[in-house]
Design a protein around this nucleic acid. Structure first.
Lengths: 215, 215
DNA sequence: TGTACATCAGTGAACGCGCGTTCACTGATGTAC
DNA sequence: TGTACATCAGTGAACGCGCGTTCACTGATGTAC
């Protein structure tokens, strides 16, 4: 028995999910998420199933469970991926505009809304992911955490520009503005009577003429 | 065979749903909707089932199908009932405040938001009904139709007060404000860091300082 | 008022189906020597 | 570079379960005479 032992133990690894190591694993995971997003828009949150996702992605149902603990973990990862991408855009935008003062930020509002909408468009099932985050109790925290993080970043930029204003109130109003921004993102996707440009312009107008400060 | 025939035909009525006639039927229908709303909040849109609704309501699964064509018809009726009640409040509010001009309407904003929230609270599963209307493709039209109807009514009140403004643009901006209003209603139900009063006051402030007119 | 009967409201049990998940397994890939 | 072997990625088939819906039926209610 001259077989060489190199691993610490030869216990049968429990085949549970872990951070993917090989390249094809990363690709399979992303593919599962893309398909899940697309199905969210096609069949809806109450019809989507793990078997359906796996079949569309061309893998066995069991493969899905190497990457996700259960069905909700798939949806949660989907939501997180979209929100992370949207937040990255917002952080970059903030970095670029915060030097411009309140006016600069107001002028950039339309651009920010447009960039965010483009991220939503680029993700399969984009807007349906946002809606699922709202409607499924188990997923709500993803949305909340993301929105709060964004609001924190906004506060950092706005607070020095409104030094006399109560921070707690400013945070609250920024939080609400974030919520309005997402409402606009959703509106863009189910109104066909108006062009995207019209909606974006109105949204930027309403958001930037509403006053953060004062009583 | 001297039996008297009074009905036009004696064909076995197909036992399909129709407008309820007896009082207990009306009550059963309402009870099914109440239970459905409550379950929407408790188990979520992706776990709720017709069997579950019937069991909780204390009737057999088959009884549910006397009142609703299928599962979506239950949810649709639920959404319609809530939105009708909210719209009734809005119409009454509008009637009362439209004489006050733009200032009167602006001052009444907080009250409208509060009244709407109270309706949402009073309906079992209130906020989850609103969210389901968003997230389920088959139900989206209920929300859209309701919001459009509300916007039409608002336009009627605001247009005379802003005679120089392009009607199409005004409608669009009012439509967006309605959307913001519903976003506030939803916010009230998942933020526990701030009191309802704080949120309502901020919302009224943001909505009424944003300018409907001008470019 | 009594009653025969039409209609309405609700039952009990079952149907076929697809769900979410797990099992023991195989094939693909990486790596120490 | 070859190779033995550990580890990783993915399979095929099945599981128990609850789903949405329908069936033939019974009991409750309303009403014409």
């Amino acid at each position: 028995m001259a077989t060489v032992k190199r691993g610490k133990r030869k216990a049968k690894a429990p085949a549970l999910r872990a951070a993917p190591i090989q390249d094809r694993a990363v690709q399979t995971r992303e593919r599962l998420l893309d398909i899940a997003g697309a199905l969210l828009g096609e069949v809806g949150i109450e019809r989507i199933s793990t078997n359906m996702i796996a079949a569309q992605a061309g893998v066995s149902p069991a493969a899905l469970y190497r990457y996700f603990k259960d069905k909700y973990a798939v949806l949660e990862a989907l939501g997180r991926r979209l929100m992370d991408r949207q937040n990255a855009v917002l952080f970059a935008w903030l970095e670029e505009h915060k030097a411009g003062g309140l006016d600069g930020l107001a002028e950039g509002t339309e651009e920010l809304l447009r960039l965010t909408a483009e991220i939503t468009d680029s993700e399969p099932g984009g807007v349906w992911i946002l809606r699922a985050m709202r409607a499924v109790p188990q997923l709500g925290h993803v949305r909340l955490e993301s929105h709060n993080e964004v609001t924190d970043a906004l506060l950092e930029a706005y607070a020095p520009l409104l030094p006399k204003m109560n921070k707690r109130m400013l945070w609250r109003r920024l939080r609400m503005t974030v919520e309005f921004g997402y409402a606009v993102d959703e509106m863009l996707h189910d109104d066909d009577r108006f062009s995207r440009d019209e909606i974006l312009r109105d949204a930027a107008h309403l958001l930037s003429t509403s006053r953060l400060e004062d009583e």
